[in-house]
Nucleic acid binder design. Structure first.
Lengths: 345, 345
DNA sequence: TTGTAAGCGTTATCAG
DNA sequence: CTGATAACGCTTACAA
């Protein structure tokens, strides 16, 4: 492997000049720059990342911490990761992938060993123990998700509360008065995951405002869970005309159950989902949904970090405004004073 | 941040001694080792990764290259990544996440800048341009997937050919004689993705051996695609009694379509899937399936690299034998000489 | 516009 | 069993 010194020798310049050509931190005459570049080309020179990190005390690496839990929707995670990596590369950064089983220790490790310059946290809970570590060691960080107390932290997330409200608004405007919210698995709420609780709040408040009669049912990802939850909802509240669904894996079973029990979507039951667009596009009928902008969450997190590492400045919470796309799964509620075609026995 | 020198001073020993305490590369008296460890504790010392990489010319980092294509099943990718990261940590390695949009350049970059010691490739095609790069720069690599010419390469994959044959065996033994294979999206075959072609070959050969009448239908992930594919298959070959499905995302639409058209699974149509277990468990009835051992692929890739970086030795191709789990979606074919309840008009 | 040289924090060789 | 010390390859004042 050629070193900077080799390049300098070959180009007949000082080592520092080569370095400056590469970093652009001081002006270099067109001539010598050319010569240096040629030498780099010829010798196939690649700067040694470790040496660079040592001398500059910057690793040009971002650490991305992902959960290894399986009760979260994986494709969203993956999309975030892709977004992060792609954006980071645009700034000349690489991305280190950490799982959460190292917990806060992992963050401490990569930060204090200077393996990474900054950290991106995903799946942030309302009370998240990793936050204490971040504040304590003072590593630059961006959170995807908003904790209960975001003071001094850079966060980005979909505005889930507004998203929840948006779902209710849409249904209420269509005349729906009895709505069920099929949510994430119970554990997600017990962990006080921010996005889940905020969505619930938005939906609850929206329902109160519109006078919509609402129930919330957490739901695991299996077919049985979906079946049980749906059956219970329809039995207890046969006048239900609309479903809001936040648990993406439960959408396919839900759809086929409705079909099996001969309830047409959207004629008998309207559905509004909170999910990535490509999920909403894969069902028949397509789902009216509030989009989860996963890739954008990733790229924004990177942008936040780049800004922070350059400027400093005050921390901020970025809430991305939700947008609801009307597709085929929602329609005006069956008229007739809340009666249903499927009255209780 | 405390440095090794600080620790040495605090413990009253030479810097080299501290280094040796950490690496264990030469014996140190119980006493001094204690003192050093105490100093490390007190000063909260963490070795500087860059300095280490520079001095030892090993980064202790693995690079994992993932595709950013969306026509591959994402959860499998994620599971592989989790497996890789977890296993790598066990060996003291961190994992750098690269997307394939840098292509072979990305590999070159991290390898020649010594950002990573070795590379793990996923989504390996039969003819993969990244292989040339790997061989050329001589970086240690493990491929998840097997190229057409694996000479000199370390590979690991599910034995997809055997997996395909296994599916046919199972169905044939149940008396099925007309089978459709719903495969990956057309692009996957056009890219000559190894696993897809091998599966097809296994299925084709199995069908030939058993005298099973087989059609292969590539299928995109949308509901419409699934619907179209299924409709066409059933129209053209109404005597079809079994489906082999390799495209995980079309499973939910397929199931609900069968339900809608009043074909019972497994009474009218048997289904065998090639997919991760948790997918097979999420439908009703649960799917008879050949498991895709995603996490194991990841951990094996790491093990291969660790062995290679330690020993050298000849390269190897590890094909994990498939295992078929019988669940509720497959049953004996309807008897009666291949007649169907749904004859052509 | 360019060169010189002092680190950056480890590892590993060579003595003792 | 332990200590000095020369690399490792690059960045960045400080000079010229």
């Amino acid at each position: 492997m050629a070193t900077l010194a080799d390049v300098a020798r070959h180009a007949g310049v000082a080592a520092s000049t080569v370095s400056y050509v590469l970093s652009g931190k001081r002006s270099v005459s067109e001539q010598t720059r050319e010569r240096v570049h040629r030498a780099i080309e010829i010798l196939n020179y690649h700067p040694h990342a470790g040496a660079r990190a040592l001398a500059s005390s910057r690793s040009n690496v971002l650490a991305l911490i992902v959960p290894l839990r399986s009760d979260m929707y994986v494709p969203v995670m993956m999309e975030i990761a892709i977004g992060v990596v792609t954006k980071a590369r645009g700034y000349g950064y690489d991305v280190l992938l950490l799982t959460n089983d190292e917990g806060a220790e992992g963050i401490k490790r990569v930060a204090s060993s200077a393996r990474a310059d900054a950290v991106i946290l995903t799946d942030v809970g309302l009370e998240d123990d990793r936050i204490a570590t971040i504040l304590q060691i003072g590593v630059d960080a961006a959170l995807i998700g908003v904790p209960a107390d975001p003071v001094g932290l850079d966060c980005v997330d979909l505005d889930f509360e507004a998203a929840g409200r948006l779902c209710v608004d849409h249904l209420a405007q269509l005349g729906h008065r009895t709505v069920a919210f099929i949510g994430e698995a119970d554990g997600v709420y017990r962990r006080h995951t921010g996005f889940a609780e905020r969505t619930l709040r938005g939906i609850t408040e929206g329902a109160a405002v519109w006078g919509v009669d609402l129930v919330h049912r957490p739901c695991e990802g299996s077919y049985e869970a979906a079946a049980g939850t749906l059956a219970r909802v329809l039995e207890e509240r046969p006048q239900t005309t609309a479903l809001i669904v936040q648990n993406e894996v439960v959408i396919p079973p839900l759809m086929s159950l409705l079909r099996t029990t001969r309830r047409a979507v959207p004629e008998d039951v309207s559905i509004v989902a909170l999910c990535p667009d490509h999920i909403a596009d894969q069902t028949a009928p397509r789902l009216t949904s509030v989009q989860i902008p996963a890739a954008e969450l990733g790229t924004r997190a990177v942008e936040i970090l780049m800004r922070r590492m350059a400027n400093g400045g005050p921390s901020e919470v970025q809430l991305i405004p939700p947008s609801l796309t009307v597709r085929g799964s929602s329609a005006a509620a069956r008229t007739g004073g809340g009666n249903s075609r499927h009255p209780a026995p």
